[in-house]
Design a protein around this nucleic acid. Structure first.
Length: 542
RNA sequence: GCCCCGAUAGCUCAACUGGAUAGAGCAACGGUCUUCUAAACCGUAGGUUACAGGUUCGAGUCCUGUUCGGGGUACCA
């Protein structure tokens, strides 16, 4: 509806040969200002050097000649706003549209882009934490939104199974094995101290019949440990409803020679130089303050190099859009990756980096400091034990990724009432129950209900919220912020609960009952669709 | 020092590209179930949008500076 009004106004201006300014068409916060409002006259006031209210009146006159039946009334107000009142008929018609289009309600033409989205990407050194959870849900929900638009989305997990972290993991398991064998053997400095390490050590000894390799950095030991941890990670993600299509590991980039290719290309373009035994990249050519080391004097690459090689692979794989989701701590690294790619002559404009702020955990009103190494964290699994996957998913995307997320353990543990998720699910269950009740009452069909009977304010308010669905989805896609959908569904549920409280659906009045049942059916479809995009279940009973 | 995020009701947070009287939930207080689920609804109360300037018809939103909090700024990942 908003783009439609926008185009109507543009048409009027074009007809009058007035240059079209950058103006907004929106739903005003205050219902006294109509269903839709535009500031076009005020934008034109400066250009035309005329009174904005006068301009508004002129545009209104012109619009009235169009005899647009969807618009009931147009009014011009104080500084120069033009407010539109949309006819009830339009809102009522949405009920039929929703039933007819079902899951394609307000969905535009298939976009058909190839999208790759990388997220979570935690190295297999321990269970996923609450911090990883935010990224998992954020990435998956963004993927669902893009899929809704008919894009082909690849969910990808990139991990490092070759570096120093893996060595520390091996050493830690090794130490635990030694201890299990009755030896006094300390966990190395910077090693992993979690209980899961002990379990892995115990299983390792069992499966290898008590034989421990002599070298703590033994490949078999490390692989055993990382495989075990990866299995845990995948089970956790599975439980959360997050499924990656591809797992890419850093080790393969070395064995396949991709790292060397990048070095050769950069060398060829003249962006590398040797200094103090290390290989340096001229990051300053791309706006960085300092040049960066790509290969240490020890001969090992820094993390930037495989990151660049990996992203080069992504570009070569031919995606229309590449999305990376990182925690705020990565904010300094992605400019280097982009610089490296540009140095090789690649266009990085289709790479979008989304940074989310951290998750802080509070327990008894105090912040809990988390560290995987020290194992004083709450895992994502434990969180799901407390609150269930639906609540966890919802909580993670309730907020913009730009803001810190405060996860209150007490609140998560609390039974339902304070959980906004239940509010939505309850609305859905209620709608389902009404439909079920109508069957019990012997109303066998309502799809031929007369939508013109849906004319009370509370009923139309529900449909007004329904009318905004397309705009909200568009907003989610544009900003890649699923949060807008959560607040929309809250709004939808509120409108419905209010309708429910004022109007009884199934009554003696059969015609009215049918009309209302039809609306309930339609809104239930939309609520289920919205929850589905969020990856939250829509229960029929609660 | 420099870079990135944030600061809005007692608490957790909204406010779509600058729009009209800054909104929800929780907590507090008061109402509403013989009728489709009260996990709901209605009402009361709660604000100098961290601070100071600036830009304009109009600023929570944009610009500059300040304060506080988080994260970066490695031959760690």
């Amino acid at each position: 509806m908003l783009p439609y009004i926008h185009s109507l106004i543009s048409e009027v201006l074009r007809k009058r040969s007035i240059e079209i300014p950058d103006f907004t068409v929106e739903h005003p916060k205050n219902p006294d200002f109509g269903d839709i409002s535009t500031n076009v006259a005020m934008k034109l006031a400066g250009i035309l050097k005329k009174n904005p209210l006068k301009i508004a009146e002129e545009i209104r006159e012109e619009l009235l000649t169009l005899h647009e039946f969807l618009i009931q009334e147009i009014e011009c107000v104080r500084p120069g706003f033009i407010n539109f009142y949309i006819s009830d008929h339009y809102y009522q018609s949405l009920v039929e549209k929703l039933i007819e289009e079902d899951k394609n309600f307000m969905k535009p033409e298939r976009e058909g882009k190839k999208v790759q989205i990388e997220f979570v990407s935690a190295n297999p050194t321990g269970p996923l934490t609450i911090g990883h959870g935010r990224q998992a849900v954020l990435g998956d929900t963004i993927a669902r939104i893009l899929e809704w638009y008919g894009n082909d989305v690849t969910r990808e997990y990139y991990f490092n199974n070759a570096g120093r972290q893996m060595q520390r993991l091996g050493e830690s398991v090794y130490a635990r094995c030694k201890q299990l064998l009755g030896k006094d053997y300390p966990i190395p400095e910077g090693g992993y101290e979690g209980e899961y390490i002990r379990d892995i050590a115990s299983d390792y000894l069992k499966e290898r019949e008590g034989i421990l390799p002599e070298n703590p950095l033994d490949r078999d030991l490390i692989d055993f440990a990382s495989d075990r941890i990866f299995k845990m990670i995948r089970e956790t993600l599975d439980r959360l409803g997050v499924h990656h299509d591809i797992f890419t590991n850093e080790k393969d980039l070395y064995t396949s020679g991709k790292i060397d290719e990048v070095l050769a290309l950069l060398r060829e373009k003249g962006y590398l130089y040797d200094k103090e035994g290390a290989v340096w990249f001229r990051a300053t050519c791309f706006g960085a303050e300092k040049d960066r080391v790509f290969v240490k004097s020890s001969g090992e690459p820094t993390y930037r190099l495989p990151d660049i090689a990996y992203h080069r692979e992504k570009l070569l794989r031919g995606f229309d859009l590449i999305i990376d989701i990182f925690g705020a701590d990565h904010h300094a690294t992605y400019p280097d990756v982009k610089a490296g790619l540009e140095a090789m002559g690649y266009d990085t404009s289709n790479i979008v980096v989304l940074l989310h702020q951290f998750v802080t955990l509070t327990r008894n009103g105090e912040k809990v400091k988390m560290s995987t190494r020290k194992a004083n964290f709450v895992t994502l699994d434990e969180l799901m034990d407390l609150a269930g996957p639906d609540v966890v998913r919802y909580f993670y995307i309730m907020r913009t990724m730009d803001a810190h997320l405060n996860f209150d353990i007490e609140l998560a543990q609390k039974e339902s009432d304070e959980n906004p998720v239940f509010y939505l699910q309850y609305a859905h269950a209620r709608m389902n129950n009404i439909l079920k009740h109508s069957v019990d009452k012997g109303i066998d069909s309502y799809l031929d209900g007369d939508i013109q009977l849906l004319n009370e304010p509370e009923t139309l308010d529900v449909l007004k919220v329904v009318s905004e669905f397309g705009e909200v989805m568009e907003l989610c896609r544009r900003t890649l912020e699923p949060m807008h959908l959560t607040s929309y569904l809250q709004k939808l549920a509120t409108a419905f609960h209010k309708f429910y409280a004022t109007h009884r659906v199934v009554t003696e009045d059969l015609l009215l009952s049918r009309a209302r049942l039809k609306m309930v059916h339609a809104v239930k479809t939309l609520m289920a669709e919205g929850l589905g995009i969020l990856g939250v279940s829509a229960p029929d009973h609660m």
